[in-house]
């Protein structure tokens, strides 16, 4: 379980990172915590002749809670998310999700940037970021650009990030209303069999808005606009929940694997979504 040989770089700034990416193109990969990339390199599922360790670059470890939005640096770890009191107050869904990722050791190392940039459909943060309508900041030789999380994922491990770009930050509009991140997994440390991120606002007894995204039920995270729309204007009665689940099932495309056959995954997805909606509603 030793990876193929590679050159290791630990540049001190982003210019140094971009220069190596420019020189080696897709033969180079950046690494934050390494807890997705190193296992893949060990399994020889990822070949990385030039590995760029971002730990000395700096400027990507901050969490800034502003009046309209939250900016999270790419090197912020899941553990940092859990421990940040102002973030937990402003966007408690992040902490709820981070607590369900992997295990303590992995959460000390695993970063938000790595989790969203890797494009692994099993990762939890991509679906969550779609639910929250986050934007990802990408830096390249030509400067910075922002890509909405809802447009970022193209296929498993394929994203809108160019080979020569680095994802440096995630910006989230300050979430409103009730929230839930609900995840079904076989054991601690496993990816989701199905997970749902839900953020709901309420006016009187009626649902005013609902954002719903699902994890590990397609080759990308799935933001289900139709599922959210099925809840808006209702009092979240049983018919609305059933309609939302049906709309969501129409948007996902799970495949059979060691977490179960397709019918089972769809069943679990429906159960998990229903639970997530009800919990979010109870907090709205």
């Amino acid at each position: 379980m030793i990876p193929a040989a590679f050159e290791y770089y630990r540049p001190q700034d982003m210019a140094g990172v971009l220069a190596i990416l420019e020189e080696h193109g897709d033969d180079a990969r950046v690494m934050a915590g390494g807890h997705s990339l190193i296992p893949m390199m060990k399994l020889r599922m990822a070949e990385v002749p030039h590995l760029i360790d971002l730990q000395d670059v700096g400027g990507m470890s901050g969490i800034e809670v502003g009046t309209d939005s939250i900016r999270i640096g790419a090197m912020v770890t899941q553990s940092d998310i859990i421990d940040d009191a102002s973030l937990a107050a402003a966007a408690p869904i992040l902490r709820e999700a981070a607590l369900q990722i992997a295990d303590p050791q992995v959460r000390y190392m695993g970063t938000v940037g790595g989790n969203v940039a890797n494009g692994d459909p099993g990762n939890d943060m991509p679906g969550l970021m779609q639910c929250l309508d986050a934007r990802f900041t990408l830096v390249g030789a030509d400067g910075e650009r922002d890509v909405p999380a809802r447009d970022f994922y193209e296929a498993a491990y394929m994203t809108a990030r160019e080979d020569e770009e680095v994802l440096t930050a995630v910006t989230i509009p300050l979430p409103k209303g009730g929230y839930a991140y609900e995840k079904q997994k076989r054991k601690i440390g496993d990816y989701a069999t199905a997970a749902a991120a839900v953020q709901i606002t309420k006016e009187g007894d009626v649902c005013a808005s609902a954002a719903i995204a699902m994890t590990n039920l397609s080759d990308t995270p799935v933001y289900s606009e139709a599922a959210g729309a099925a809840l808006v204007g209702t009092a979240l009665d049983d018919a609305a929940l059933t309609a939302a689940a049906a709309a969501m099932l129409n948007d996902i495309d799970p495949t059979e694997d060691n977490r179960g056959p397709i019918a089972f995954k769809k069943h679990v997805a429906g159960v998990i979504l229903r639970r997530a909606i009800l919990r979010a509603w109870s907090r709205a």
Binding site: V106, Y108, M109
Partner: peptide
């Protein structure tokens, strides 16, 4: 396990528990 699951290789690095099978010495 050597696959970041079992924790038998856990060490403390700069105050964090880390699975040393999932970190390069260079890091």
């Amino acid at each position: 396990c050597e696959t970041s699951h079992c924790g038998a290789c856990t060490v403390t690095i700069d105050g964090k528990s880390v699975k040393s099978c999932t970190m390069f010495a260079a890091q």
